[in-house]
């Protein structure tokens, strides 16, 4: 831990007009980076339980009312879901590359990669809301507009399909909310980077935002099979 500060290129101020990267309560930058990552991970652990609550409910009701959940799942558009997965994975890749650029102190590249991540995130949300719109059209929105056509029920009791759609909207809605927060966070980072406020010594701001973004990606990695692929899509 106690590598000399003088020899490390990280501690050499590259831009003197910036606030010093090292906050007074830390001995060295490395310790400060560890503290900020640690804080984000503790927050993400609470987020795991936050999402975990809905996942637990989902697992329970899926085992209790399997036929309704399978029928509801077959009503979702798997092509759109797969496309959303690809877009979100791509956004995670550009995010990881943005952290890489921030570490290397490449400002223009960092702004470009952060913007790409934001655009991919917006594309994901656009597809998500397209699907919500389709669900409204198919009258599959519980509580507000739920009058499904008989073939979409596939012989399952209507109220269990409705329960599945409740989970669908709550889980994807909660995820979409996190996406919106993530896009806001990355927009702040992109503006800061554009103004030259994120030097190599400040790269951990991007790193910590990236952790949040990747976490939201992981949630979708589970939501996609759980919601769209239940019990297979074969005929």
């Amino acid at each position: 831990m106690s590598e000399s500060a003088a020899g490390s290129p990280l501690v050499t101020p590259s831009a003197r007009h910036l606030r010093p990267a090292l906050h007074h309560q830390f001995e060295e930058l490395e310790q400060q980076y560890d503290a900020s990552s640690f804080g984000m991970w503790v927050f993400l652990a609470t987020e795991m339980l936050f999402f975990g609550g809905v996942f637990t409910g989902y697992i329970m009701y899926r085992s209790l009312y399997y036929s309704g959940f399978a029928a509801g799942s077959h009503g979702l558009e798997v092509d759109l879901g797969a496309a959303m997965t690809f877009v979100l994975l791509a956004s995670s890749f550009t995010m990881a590359m943005a952290v890489h650029a921030a570490r290397a102190g490449k400002r223009v590249m960092l702004v470009g990669l952060l913007s790409s991540t934001i655009i991919l995130g917006i594309a994901f949300l656009a597809m998500k809301f397209t699907e919500y719109f389709h669900k409204w059209h198919e009258q599959l929105v519980p509580g507000l507009n739920f009058h499904p056509a008989v073939e979409s029920l596939r012989g399952a009791p209507e109220h269990t399909v409705e329960l599945f759609m409740c989970f669908y909207f709550f889980m994807t809605g909660l995820h979409a909310l996190h996406m919106i927060i993530g896009i806001g966070l990355l927009s702040v980072m992109a503006i800061l980077a554009w103004r030259g406020k994120i030097s190599r010594e400040h790269y951990n701001r991007v790193e910590v935002s990236g952790l949040y973004w990747h976490f939201v990606d992981i949630i979708w990695i589970y939501l996609f099979p759980l919601l769209y692929l239940i019990g297979g899509r074969y005929k």
Binding site: V42, A45, T46, M48, L49, G52, T56
Partner: peptide
């Protein structure tokens, strides 16, 4: 921290 998160999740489920 990550393992603790998974542990709590496993407890809940």
């Amino acid at each position: 921290v990550v393992l603790a998160g998974f542990f709590w999740l496993a407890l809940m489920v």
